[in-house]
């Protein structure tokens, strides 16, 4: 073994030992002594530290995708196009199930935030950014001197990102990554379906898996990204639409000629008491107006009075059908 190789081995050994929980002042003195023995020791140590930092920086960016077990890329299905069209009109949340692999780890400095069904919370991050979590949302964040990374495991969150050019703000949602270029924006995740909308500024949405050919999109107010099963589509989103999508921040749901099926989906996200539609003939009934997200009973009364539907409260669920 060459002399240089031996020194390199010592340097990496120091790097590893230095991370021991019981690293002490006398250990440090020993390291300092080793470093002052020769310039060769010093440069080898600098080189290892440099490489170590690079690995860590990349690891921070990579952590979400690397811990995934075999991401799901189902082939393009014709009916998903139809779904997207429905999406562009109102917002229909029909999900295919794809469970991503274990992301249950809790790294050093990882903060976990959870809201229950019907919950709504604003949390400040260390860098001055704010994250507003909507109902039934699970989110993790690592904010340190090097990086600002958030994983949206499920649900929906609105981000107000503090400007910091040196630390891009990155949000992972399933197989998508949103790189923030300083802005206010919304990310919604339901299993492998991801939606991103921007209220202010712009963000870049890209694939997480860097071995795949990448599609990325920069979105600004006026458009949105819908991503599902490895495909990505950019759709129009008028300021009014973004505004109504964000109505949950004030505790409201806003609909504009939205199908009853979609409306039910929306209410069901916020309430344990679910709306169940018994009759397929009525799912296309169009609903407009704004409603308190947590008051499903009031919505039921409206369906009964204004739309002439039968609404039955049974075993904690609201059953909707046509009047006999």
């Amino acid at each position: 073994m060459s002399n240089a190789t031996r020194i390199e081995e010592s340097a990496v050994a120091w790097c590893v030992k230095r991370e021991r929980a019981d690293w002490s002042a006398s250990d440090q003195a020993e390291l300092d002594a080793w470093l002052s023995e020769s310039t060769a020791h010093r440069v080898a140590m600098l080189r290892m530290e440099y490489g170590w930092q690079r690995v860590d920086r990349m690891a921070a960016l990579r952590s979400s995708s690397l811990s995934q077990v075999a991401p799901v890329h189902s082939p393009y299905q014709p009916d998903s196009k139809k779904r997207w069209l429905a999406m562009a009109a109102g917002f229909l949340l029909v999900m295919s199930l794809s469970i991503f692999g274990a992301q249950q780890w809790m790294g050093n400095g990882t903060q976990r935030y959870v809201t229950m069904v019907g919950g709504h919370e604003t949390v400040p991050l260390k860098d001055g950014s704010n994250v507003e979590l909507n109902t039934n949302t699970h989110l993790r964040a690592v904010v340190d001197e090097k990086a600002r990374v958030v994983w949206l495991d499920k649900g929906e969150a609105y981000f107000e990102v503090a400007h910091d050019e040196k630390r891009p703000f990155v949000v992972y949602a399933g197989d998508r990554r949103i790189v923030v270029l300083g802005t206010h924006f919304l990310v919604r995740r339901d299993h492998d379906r991801i939606e991103v909308m921007v209220a202010e500024g712009r963000v870049r949405v890209e694939g997480v898996d860097t071995t795949k050919p990448l599609k990325s999109a920069i979105i600004t107010p006026g458009n949105m990204v819908v991503s599902e099963s490895g495909s990505m589509m950019v759709a129009m989103a008028s300021p009014e639409k973004v505004e109504s999508e964000l109505a949950w921040r004030r505790g409201y749901l806003v609909f504009d000629r939205t199908s009853l099926a979609s409306v039910a989906e929306q209410f069901n996200r916020y309430n344990e008491k679910k709306i169940l539609i018994e009759d397929p003939k009525i799912i296309d009934t169009r609903i407009s107006g704004s409603f308190e997200a947590n008051n499903v009973d009031a919505f039921g009364r409206l369906l009964q009075r204004a739309y002439g539907l039968s609404v039955v409260d049974h075993k904690g669920q609201l059953w909707i059908a046509q009047q006999e």
Binding site: V12, R47, M48, G51, W52
Partner: peptide, 14 residues
């Protein structure tokens, strides 16, 4: 493992 792995990784990255 860390000593072996990090060294290989760093040499590769560099």
């Amino acid at each position: 493992h860390m000593m072996y792995g990090m060294r290989a990784l760093i040499n590769f990255m560099l």
